[in-house]
Design a protein around this nucleic acid. Structure first.
Lengths: 337, 337
DNA sequence: CCTGGCACTCCGTGGTCCTCAGTGCCGATT
DNA sequence: AATCGGCACTGAGGACCACGGAGTGCCAGG
C-alpha cells in the first residue's frame, strides 16, 4: 500500500512540519526535498497517506500535518536516533562531572537535559528497591527519639525519626545496630523484609518491643514512596510552543507527579528508548505532547527513568539522541560514585 | 492632597480591578461601592489620583487601572490582612499534620500554599546556618570511602561521601566521631568552624591528615549551598493569568533559583509579611508580578522564607493572610518535630 | 504512471464602519 | 467650594467585506 516514495513523502512532511510549524504543501515539498517527482505526483501520494490516516488537513486547501499515527510511523521506521555532537558530549561530561552528591547529580542532569532538548526534562530518583543496603545507622537523638539513617549503594540516604519509644539504653541501640547491619548490609532492598524477619527473636525479651518498633519503621521507609520522587526543569520552554490543549492543562499534568511516574514507568523495554506520542499517553492534558524516555542505571541494572516532554511536533531524532546520551552518562557517573 | 474619599476611590479601583481584570470606570465604581457621590465626582477624584501616579489609563476613554504605586499604597494603608476561615485552618492542620520528615513537610507546605492562594508558591528549606548540630555520624563504606552524615535540630540531614583517603582503621574513625560530637553537638552551625579548629592537634600525628580531610569536608558542607534549596508548586496557576511580560519570561525567572532566593531573602523585617510589587522586584521577567513572603521558624528564630508569586493584580489581603497562616503553622510543625 | 494546467476552496489580512464604554469639561445647583 | 447632570469627544473592539494567495482535486495528454 505504501511504497518507498510515499514513505519518503511522509518523512519529508514530518521534517518540514517540525521545522516550520506550518502545514506543508506539495510545492514546498517538491522544492525542499529531492523526491524527483512533481508536486502533482506528491499530491496523489498525499491523498493516499491521508486515506491511511498518517497525515491530515487542518482545513480544505491547506497543507498537510502529520497525525499521531504519522509520527509513530516516522519514529518507528523513518528516522534514526541522532548522535550528539562532540561539543555536546564534552558539555555533558563537564556539566555532570562536578556534582558532589546524589541530589546534585539529579539536579544537574535535569537541567542539562532541558537545555539540550529545549523542552521539559524529567528525572526520576534512583529506585531504592533495586539497590542494596550499604549501611544502617541508629542515632539516639536524646529524649525518647532515635534517628534511623539507611544508606544505599547508589548513594541515596533515607532518614526517619522514630518517636514514642520508651527509654532505651544506648548499648541496646548499639547492639541492634550491629545486628541489623550484619543481617542486611549488602542485601537488595527487596530481600530486607525476609532478612530481618527473625531478628526480634534474637533480642532480649525486655527490648523486643523496641526492636519491633525500629524494624517496622525500617520496612515502612523502604517500601514507601521512593519512586515517587522526581524533578522537573525547563517548563519555561513550554511557553514557546502553542498547544492544541491549553498550556494550563499541560502544566497541571506536569505537576501531578503520579501521572509522570506512570508515564515514565510504562516503558516497554528496559534500556531502550521509549516514545509515547499524543493520545498514546492516555492523559487528557498531554494529548498534544510526546514523551521520550529512557532507563538509566549502573551496568545493566536499571535504576530509574529520565525523559523529556514536548509537543508532538518535536524533533524526535535529536531528542532521542539527547535522552539516550544523558541516560548513559548519568549511569556512568552513578557507577563511579 | 489625597482626602479620605480619594483613598476610598483608590481602594475601590484596586478591589474591582482585581475582581474583574478590566479597567474600571467611574460609573461602575459608583454602582458597586457606597461612595455616596456621583460618577462625575469620582471622575474628578480619578484625575487627581492619576496625576499623583496611583492609577493610569491603558488608553484614552478606557477605565483606570492601578499602578505599582497604587498597589503599594493599597497594601500599606488601605487594606488589612484577611484571616483564614475556620475551614481553611482545619485544612492546613490536617494537611500538614501527616508529614513524616522534613522533605515531606516542605513538599506539603508548598502544595498547600499554592492551593490556598491559587498562585505559585515557594518554600525555602530551613537554613542550616541558624540551626545547631544534633549529631555527626561517620560511616565507613568499605574501600577508602567514608560517609559523613550531619543531623541538625531542624530535622535536616546533610550527607557527604569522603573519598580518596588512605586506609584508616575503624577505631580511628570511631575516635574521631566521638571527638567530633563532643566538640560540636548542640553548637550552632556558625560556631562549628571555631569549635573544630584545634581538633587536628588532638589526634595522633599519623591520623592527622585523615582528620583534616574529614574536617574540611564537614566545614565545606556546612557553608555551601544550603539556603539554595527551594521548592515550587502551582506553576499551572500562572497559565490562567495573562501577563504584560510574556509567560515565558516569568517561568524562566521562576526556574532561576538564585533569583528567587534573593527575592525571598530581601525581606526587611523578620517575622513580618513582605510584599514586593512589580518593578520593586528589580527583575525583568517579574515586572508584572508581585511577591508576598514571610519568615518561618521555631520560636522567634527565623529559619527560612516562604512566599507566593502572582500577578501584581492579585488579592493582596487574602494572599497575605494565607502566607502568614501557613508560615505560622509550619513553624509549629517544625517545633513539634 | 507521471505531469502540467485549471478551476475551486478557504484562510488570513487589511480596510471601513459602527457601537459603546468611558472620559473631560462646562455650567448649574446646593 | 464642592458636587452634579449633561454633552461632545475619543479610541478599542467587533462585524462585515473584499481580495490575494497557497494549496487542493481532477482531468487530459505524454
Amino acid at each position: 500500500m505504501l511504497d518507498e516514495r510515499k514513505l519518503a513523502v511522509l518523512r519529508a512532511v514530518v521534517e518540514d512540519f517540525v521545522n516550520t510549524n506550518e502545514p506543508v504543501g506539495s510545492r514546498a515539498l517538491a522544492d525542499r526535498h529531492p523526491l524527483g517527482v512533481s508536486p502533482a505526483t506528491i499530491r496523489n501520494d498525499m491523498v493516499a497517506l491521508e486515506e491511511e490516516g498518517y497525515i491530515t488537513q487542518p482545513h480544505t486547501s491547506a497543507g498537510r500535518v502529520p497525525t499521531d499515527k504519522g509520527y509513530r510511523l516516522f519514529v518507528d521506521r523513518l528516522s534514526s536516533v541522532k548522535p550528539l555532537s562532540a561539543a555536546e558530549r564534552r558539555a555533558i561530561e563537564s556539566f555532570l562531572g562536578g556534582a558532589v552528591d546524589l541530589d546534585e547529580i539529579v539536579a544537574r542532569t535535569v537541567r542539562l537535559l532541558a537545555q539540550l532538548t529545549r523542552q521539559v526534562a524529567i528525572v526520576q530518583y534512583p529506585s531504592l528497591t533495586r539497590s542494596s543496603v550499604q549501611h544502617v545507622e541508629l542515632v539516639p537523638l536524646g529524649g525518647h527519639r532515635i534517628m534511623m539513617v539507611v544508606i544505599t549503594n547508589t548513594g541515596r540516604v533515607e532518614q526517619r525519626v522514630i518517636d514514642g519509644l520508651g527509654v532505651v539504653d544506648e548499648s541496646v541501640v548499639e547492639d541492634l545496630r550491629s545486628m541489623l547491619n550484619r543481617a542486611i548490609a549488602g542485601k537488595h532492598l527487596g530481600d530486607v523484609p525476609d532478612a530481618v524477619e527473625d531478628l526480634p527473636a534474637q533480642v532480649a525479651p525486655e527490648d523486643r518491643s523496641f526492636a519491633i518498633a525500629v524494624l517496622s519503621v525500617l520496612l515502612e521507609s523502604l517500601v514507601e514512596r521512593h519512586e515517587e520522587k522526581i524533578v522537573l526543569a525547563g517548563t519555561a520552554n513550554l511557553a514557546a510552543v502553542d498547544f492544541a490543549a491549553s498550556l494550563r492543562d499541560v502544566l497541571e499534568a506536569l505537576e501531578e507527579n503520579m501521572v509522570l511516574i506512570r508515564l515514565l514507568g510504562e516503558a516497554k523495554d528496559p534500556s531502550m528508548l521509549t516514545v509515547r506520542i499524543g493520545a498514546e499517553n492516555f492523559h487528557e492534558g498531554l494529548r498534544s505532547t510526546s514523551i521520550v524516555s529512557a532507563d538509566y542505571g549502573v551496568g545493566n541494572q536499571s535504576l530509574a527513568k529520565i525523559g523529556v516532554v514536548g509537543p508532538t511536533r518535536m524533533d524526535y531524532p535529536g531528542t532521542m539522541g539527547a535522552v539516550r546520551a544523558v541516560a548513559r552518562y548519568v549511569g556512568q557517573i552513578l557507577a563511579g560514585q
